[in-house]
Design a protein around this nucleic acid. Structure first.
Lengths: 163, 163
DNA sequence: CCGGAGCGGTTGACGTGTCAATAATGCTAC
DNA sequence: GTAGCATTATTGACACGTCAACCGCTCCGG
């Protein structure tokens, strides 16, 4: 199928109906996948994907503590987004914030025992869900193809989305 | 690579490090893709993806009018979500709502000229962006593979996500 | 010394999404 | 008829994200 070109695909023009169908299915399915995973995480652990990302980073950090902006870069969030999210997580007792002694105006985020517990309880079911809904849904070939497609899309997306 | 199985993959267990890496790249890249497309649509047309979906459905509807719950099923939204969104779109003059004469308690949503205009102006750039960021980033083989992967994921996701 | 640039973090406003509760209306069963 | 009951839409409360403005602090140049 190296000569599909229903309307001469060279020329920077519009997607064909078939290409558009693939696109729509693709974007809708990834959305459904994310939403199913989110919902399982929520009902099993009362955690959102955002909570999970923060707790994962803190769990792996030295002293279960990280500077706020360090954390932000690590998980790829804007500082403002993180600040809002930490506020909500602090209200629920998952993390605490305290002034950083060494850095002027710096804030340290630290995992509470409750936060560590919640994270520990959530990991295995979450990983199992990833396996069930993604890994096991695909053949080994498809899984490798997914990796290649991902890489191609990301390369095409520009350097700002690299990491 | 038909015998990877670093920890005997049969048995419904956890994803391997490699599988997890593919998963993370996959989900992050689709997210980056969606966000880039959203941002282009926004700057070019001052429309959100939600606006686009609603306007598209109404443009194709008889009399540019649709019953609210019909519209909701058509684009796959909960009625509540649609109601909120229509409120915002109505404030911006993109659509209007009026009581439906035939159906009890029913509401008709209709496209305003301003809404039709905004949609018309947005379509070509949006489709071009889809082509540039998705279709043209992949080889024909990869595009077909993406379709197959999508289908496999969706099938595995259960009937409630079929459409 | 002081005035402004820059960094780190927070805040507010607002769009967006979900969930549960609430109308408003017709239908059905007694 | 009238007491439920389903259907249709809306509403309110809240979580989440982005953007722009702000605040406190250091540091550097005059």
């Amino acid at each position: 199928m190296t000569k599909t070109t229903p309307e001469q695909r060279r020329g920077g023009h519009l997607p064909t109906a078939e290409e558009l169908r693939i696109w729509r299915d693709f974007i809708e399915t990834t959305e459904a996948l994310r939403s199913e995973l989110t919902s399982r995480l929520q009902t099993e652990s009362s955690l959102s994907p955002g909570d999970y990302a923060v707790l994962l980073a803190l769990s792996e950090a030295q002293d279960r503590t990280m500077r706020s902006s360090e954390l932000a870069t690590h998980i790829g969030w804007e500082r403002s987004r993180l600040s809002h999210h930490l506020g909500r997580m602090e209200r629920r007792g998952l993390i605490r914030r305290q002034e950083c002694p060494t850095v002027p105006r710096g804030a340290e985020v630290l995992l509470t025992p409750a936060g560590a517990d919640a994270f520990r309880r959530s990991t295995v079911p979450h990983l199992r869900a990833i396996r069930e809904l993604f890994v096991d849904a695909l053949t080994p070939d498809q899984l490798r193809a997914a990796g290649a497609i991902t890489a191609a899309l990301r390369a095409n997306l520009g350097p700002q989305h690299e990491e």
